[in-house]
């Protein structure tokens, strides 16, 4: 394993010996078997690995959606395990954006309303909320699709709504679980360009799970998972 970043104060994200076990007794399944990972502000990390290697599990923990069985997770030096439920909700609300593997858009709710959701919980006034959501949808190439509900959108379009929803509130970290999983190459590249721009210009830290090496190439750093452990962790030669 290669230590990725220069140690300058507390890192944005620090996982120390994080384990995750699903189930109990005979049925117990070790999804993560001791993960150590530091991610600095402004980084763009791609997580790769075989199916079932624990990528989503790790991302869920990073996104404060799930709690680890063992080890510690510090976000900006704060031990997440010691936060209350509401404090973790506030952390997600103000610092994190999450693109789920299955999108999880609200059914029977228009694209723009889906995108507005994080802004509602941040208390942004309706008019402003509408403008920002419209702009963000345009940024993912969905201008004119604002009033369509997810069932009226293609898989790729739904994925882009999910991305718009994750970035609409300017999070410090964007977690994306296979954000290009359902897109063709041209669309995927557009999305990756968008993520790079957010990372470069917006200073948003990005952690992205992907199967495709092409997409991982856009990241600054590539982490490989195997059987719940980090197999390799390298800076990406290419500077996008």
């Amino acid at each position: 394993m290669v230590a990725s970043s220069q140690t300058s104060g507390t890192p944005l994200i620090e996982l120390r010996d994080v384990t995750k076990v699903y189930g109990e007794g005979q049925a117990a399944m070790q999804a993560l078997a001791g993960i150590d990972l530091r991610i600095e502000q402004g980084d763009f990390v791609a997580i790769m690995g075989h199916s079932g290697s624990g990528k989503s599990t790790c991302l869920n923990i990073l996104g404060c959606l799930d709690s680890p069985t063992g080890g510690s997770y510090c976000f900006q030096g704060v031990e997440v395990g010691q936060l209350t439920r509401d404090q973790r909700a506030r952390l997600r609300r103000y610092y994190l954006g999450f693109v789920f593997q299955g999108y999880n858009l609200l059914k029977r709710t228009s694209a723009i309303e889906n995108v507005e959701l994080p802004l509602i919980y941040r208390g942004v006034p309706a008019r402003e909320r509408h403008q920002i959501a419209r702009r963000t949808l345009a940024a993912v190439g969905l201008e004119g699709w604002e009033s369509h509900s997810p069932s009226e959108l293609s898989g790729g379009q739904q994925q882009r709504v999910a991305i718009a929803r994750a970035i609409v509130a300017d999070p410090s970290v964007l977690m994306a679980d296979e954000p290009t999983g359902n897109l063709d190459t041209a669309r995927s590249e557009e999305i990756m360009d968008l993520l790079c721009r957010l990372n470069r210009e917006g200073g948003i830290t990005i952690v992205m799970v992907t199967h495709e090496a092409d997409m991982a190439e856009y990241a600054k750093r590539i982490v490989h998972f195997r059987d719940g452990r980090i197999e390799s962790d390298e800076q990406n030669g290419r500077t996008n």
Binding site: G63, L65, R85, D86, A89, R90, L91, R92, R93, Y94, L96, F98, F100, N104, L105, L106, K107, L117, P118, Y121, R122, R165
Partner: peptide, 15 residues
Amino acid sequence: REIGTRLAIGALERE
């Protein structure tokens, strides 16, 4: 699932 999504986005328990 909708509730899960709302919670994941940062809705508080009381919200």
